[in-house]
Design a protein around this nucleic acid. Structure first.
Lengths: 212, 212
DNA sequence: TGTGTTACCGACCGTTCGTTCAGTAGGCCG
DNA sequence: CGGCCTACTGAACGAACGGTCGGTAACACA
């Protein structure tokens, strides 16, 4: 039995613009498939042979598009972190009350997580074994600090409860956000906004039924 | 540079009872070290050579205690799931209002997660590549269903807000619980109960400051 | 038709992987 | 001392790994 499903259709390139030369995969379509397979089998558990099978080519063909397995990981992790940091730069994340900025970043993170599911999933599973992984973890740490600062500010504003450690609270909050990658399926199920709504409701008002 | 720190002291066996024969590791001490290294480097990213180095022996010595790498994973995953299911069998998880039972299971899960940190962490990272992993995922699914049922029951009781899908809510809740393995350090930082308190407070009342 | 450009194949390399096995070392007890 | 038990070594195995290289295939455009 094959370890992966049918090979990906190379025709479905991101940008429709036809190019000269023999048709087939390009660097982007390889990255897209690689990220998916990395998630299915884990990065270390995925061989170049696995990738080749998923792409419908031989493994030597992969090296025509990328320098190696490490580059695929690096590009995937960078893509995920870039998208997350872009959220923190949006207007809703930089102006207004801290609690509202926090909500904006949380909603934005859910959106990024859903849009770039394979890449973010990969990011969240990184252990820091290699230099590439260490660099990604370092960027993640900066992101986490940013969130913790928002929570601290919200406590000072009096908008966020002061009886929990902001560092712990921010970690729990984004633990909830990040856990979405464990069960979200793009096809069926709730849409991105519905999940974000449920998340925000639980995170800010709690599970307990409001006494009307 | 060595990939792991100094070898584990085999003298620190779980049960103090001296046994006859040459002193050294036994199956349990090997499992304990293996689970720790699996978490540091990932299961697939850990070679038997890595384990041997962490144990302070050659890799062939490991096969004197266990049948292979797979058995180490299986025993670790079983240990974690057994501990989690034990919580769901406790009195506090089977009697009383659903919302209180839910709180009991959440607090119990935090306790198990902290007590058996390496094993539970390993469990939460399983992808389902092999039969051993598939079996662990199946048991996890049963656990998750149990939680979702508790949330549904709490909604019926009127204790839990009805404006979020119970399936989504239960997943987000345990996403928050499980995320603890990502940052909890046994030595420093908050104790198990303090984390559980913060978690329950956020989960049930929310982050927003209560209007006194 | 032929030239440029892009994509791919198949054979191969050195290394590392998990695992096996025959033999050895070091404790306790008689 | 000599069994007896448990823990371990060192060399080796076949398989799988990531990666290389010279040659080839298929398109656009002229």
């Amino acid at each position: 039995m094959a370890r992966t499903s049918a090979p990906d259709d190379p025709a479905a390139r991101s940008t429709g613009r036809r190019r000269s030369g023999r048709p087939g995969h390009d660097a982007d379509s390889v990255l897209r498939v690689a990220a998916r397979v990395f998630n299915e089998r884990g990065y270390d558990g995925t061989s170049m042979e696995d990738l080749a099978r998923a792409l419908g080519v031989t493994k030597s063909a992969i090296y025509h598009h990328v320098s190696g397995k490490t580059e695929l990981l690096r590009r995937s992790l960078d893509l995920a972190m870039d998208a997350l940091f872009e959220v923190t730069g949006e207007e809703g994340a930089t102006t207004g009350r801290a609690i509202d900025r926090l909500e904006h970043v949380m909603r934005g993170s859910v959106r990024v997580l859903v849009e770039e599911l394979p890449h973010v999933t990969l990011l969240l599973r990184v252990r820091g074994n290699t230099d590439v992984e260490k660099r990604a973890l370092e960027r993640r740490r900066r992101f986490d600090h940013l969130i913790a600062d928002l929570v601290r500010e919200g406590v000072v504003d009096g908008d966020i409860r002061s009886d929990v450690d902001p560092a712990v609270a921010s970690r729990l909050l984004f633990g909830m956000v990040n856990s979405i990658v464990e069960w979200y399926k793009p096809d069926r199920g709730l849409a991105c906004e519905e999940i974000a709504d449920a998340l925000i409701r639980i995170a800010f008002q709690g599970m307990r039924a409001p006494k009307d």
